[in-house]
């Protein structure tokens, strides 16, 4: 089944009060994949996730699970696992009771035996590496541990799809990193179809099989982390995936010139005239004045993790950040030239 379509989102539209949150959004989720919904706040990514879960309902469009139209299916019957940003654990229940909740809530005919439930809870506690914590209460656990319990609780009901809403948003940087790696491991081991919402591009790029970039209620692009980084379809996607430097340029005959000088960046066919060239901080190089595309003076620089980041003031007032190897430091006030090594071009 891996690779077949697990969930199909068709022409989804949703309006809250008067503000449109989703515009005619379509998306396929493949069975067994880890899909990231990436977008800035207000892009509609959480609303999309909640509609897939059945916690919100669309104004128009359909949600199809496998071959079954689930658009009007109540949340209880969708068999989804949902993990909230703030865990939403049941505070008055022990860890074991929290995990067993979904199984205990079933009708008697479908409910596993007490022994079976206990065994399953034990297995899940092993999976999330919290074996000795069955009798603790959520308030006795750290944020990272609580989120793992929340994940185990969602997995206990063997959902068709696991949905995570900013699962690491409330945790500090180190715990976030550990949990990311750990979630990837769990996913590799269980092969559970998983969709997670994040506004952190690093998280999306590190963790997911595919990334769906959302902006203002529309799907901008969907693809593997490599695809969206190497071939972004729009300036919006490009800007959202990291720091960029924006430069005015002229495209002609497939070539792009900045300040009259040819750049190594190729213009897509058909794009002619004034365009915008976008480059990453590491796609610029310091160069002699006569071969530079941009000029400016060094404002400040700092070093971090073996790299040097230099802020350069350009004469027209904009400041660009350049990333270079951590060798010769440049003093503030020094005039420098910058050469563009690579980048992407979109119509201005």
């Amino acid at each position: 089944m891996k690779g077949s379509t697990a969930i199909r989102v068709e022409n989804l539209s949703k309006t809250f009060d008067t503000a449109a949150v989703l515009h005619d959004l379509s998306l396929d989720v493949r069975a067994g994949e880890l899909l990231a919904l990436l977008g800035p706040s207000g892009s509609g990514k959480t609303t999309l996730l909640r509609i897939i879960a059945g916690l919100d309902f669309p104004d128009r469009g359909r949600i199809v699970f496998g071959a079954e139209d689930a658009t009007r299916l109540p949340v209880q019957q969708r068999a989804v696992g949902f993990v909230f940003q703030h865990y939403a654990l049941f505070k008055h229940m022990s860890v074991a009771d929290n995990i067993a909740y979904g199984l205990n809530a079933r009708k008697r005919a479908d409910r596993p035996s007490k022994v079976e439930i206990k065994r399953r809870v034990g297995d899940l506690l092993d999976l999330i590496k919290l074996s000795g914590f069955a009798d603790r209460y959520p308030s006795q656990l750290s944020g990272g541990q609580r989120q793992r319990i929340a994940l185990a609780r969602a997995l206990a009901v063997e959902p068709r799809v696991l949905l995570l809403d900013e699962p690491f948003g409330a945790l500090d940087a180190q715990v976030r990193k550990d949990l990311r790696r750990w979630l990837r491991e769990i996913h590799d081991r269980t092969g559970q179809t998983t969709i997670f919402v994040t506004h952190d591009q690093d998280e999306a790029l590190e963790l997911s099989d595919r990334v769906a970039v959302l902006s203002r209620g529309r799907l901008e692009q969907i693809g593997t982390p490599d695809e969206v980084q190497e071939a972004p379809v729009s300036a919006t996607v490009l800007k959202f995936l990291g720091d960029t430097i924006e430069v005015e340029a002229i495209a002609q005959g497939g070539q792009v010139r900045v300040d009259g000088r040819l750049t190594p960046v190729a213009a897509p066919p058909g794009l002619v005239g004034p365009v915008k060239l976008y480059a990453r901080p590491w796609q610029l190089q310091f160069a002699e004045s006569h071969e530079a595309h941009l000029h400016g003076t060094v404002r400040s620089s700092y070093r971090s993790q073996g790299r040097q980041r230099i802020e350069v003031d350009r004469p027209e007032g904009k400041t660009v950040v350049v990333e270079a190897s951590d060798t010769a430091r440049l003093p503030a006030g020094r005039p420098v030239g910058l050469r563009i090594l690579a980048g992407h071009v979109f119509a201005g």
Partner: peptide
């Protein structure tokens, strides 16, 4: 917390079960 009730619903519990448990 509204999320507590939503969590209960996603785990398959009906309204009455959510309310009482």
């Amino acid at each position: 917390d509204k999320e507590i009730e939503e969590a209960s619903a996603t785990l398959g519990a009906g309204r009455f079960h959510t309310l009482t448990r």
